[in-house]
Amino acid sequence: MARAPLTPGLGPVLEFDAVGVRMPRQVRRRGGGRRQRLRRIAGETRRDEVWRLRGATFSVAEGESVAIVGGKGSGRETLLRLAAGTLIPDEGAVRRRVAVVPMIDVARALQRGFTIRQNIYFVGGLLGMTPDEAGDRVAGIAAFSGLEGSLDKYLGTAIPMVRQKLAWSISMATEARAYAVEQVLVVGERDFRQQCWTRVDQMRKDGVTFLLASDSPRQFRRFCDRAIVLEAGALVAQGTVPEAIALFRESRRRGQDTPPEEPETSTEESGGPL
C-alpha cells in the first residue's frame, strides 16, 4: 500500500539495481494541444518518452553523504525521486532500508490558503509524519524557522524566503534517517544558512544519510563523502568529490562543442570507481 516499500534486512541504506525510467518528453510539439490529444486518443501517436535515467547501479551506506553531480537534464531529480520512491522505475529495482525523505521543491507544496500550522500538518504529512508527530513538532518547527508569532496566520503571499525556510524546517523535522535533497541543503539568509549548516552537520554526525544534488561545487566539497556523476541519464562515474567535479567540468567543456543528444543511447558503464 505504501508508496515507498522498505526492505528491512538490506545491508546498505539505499540500493539501485540497473534502474531505468522513461519520462514523457517535456518539449512542446507542433500541431496544437487539442489535435495532439485527439491523435493520442485515436492511438496514432504515443507520447514521446525518453529514458531519463537508465542502467543506474549503485548503493549508499548508512551515514554517507553522496553528491549527485550533473547538469540540468542529467536526470538528477529523477534519481532523487526514485530514491525517495515518489517515482516508480520502469526497469530494475530500487531498494531502501529506511524511508528516504524527498526534499525536492518542498516549498512549492505549501498551500497559500492554509495557515502555517495547517501547512506543517499538511506538508509534514506528505513527507511521512503522522498527525500526532506533526502536532508535537509544530513548536520546534516554528522556533527553527522563526515563525512562532505567526503560526495561525495564513501563508498567503509570504515571500519566497519564508516559504523556503518553512519548507526546510518541516522537512528536517521528519527526523528521517535519509534525505534526498535537491538544491536546498541550506536556505534563507546568511544567519539562517548558518543554522542550517549546524543542523545538517550534526545530523551527518549522527549517521543520517544524504543524497545531494546541487549546482554548487562548494557544497559538495564541504558536505559530501563521495560523488556520483550523471550525464544525460547515465551514471558515468563514481568516485571522490574533487574527481567528480573535475570530470563534470571537463565533460561540460566537451559538451559545448558537441551537445549531448539522444539520451536513449546511454552507455551503461555504471559502477566502477574512477
Binding site: A2, R3, T86, P102, I104, R108, L126, L127
Partner: peptide, 12 residues
C-alpha cells in the same frame, strides 16, 4: 504543485 513529487503517502 509538486505535491506528488514529495508525497510519501500512498497515491490512492
Amino acid at each position: 504543485g509538486g505535491q506528488l513529487r514529495i508525497s510519501l503517502l500512498p497515491t490512492e
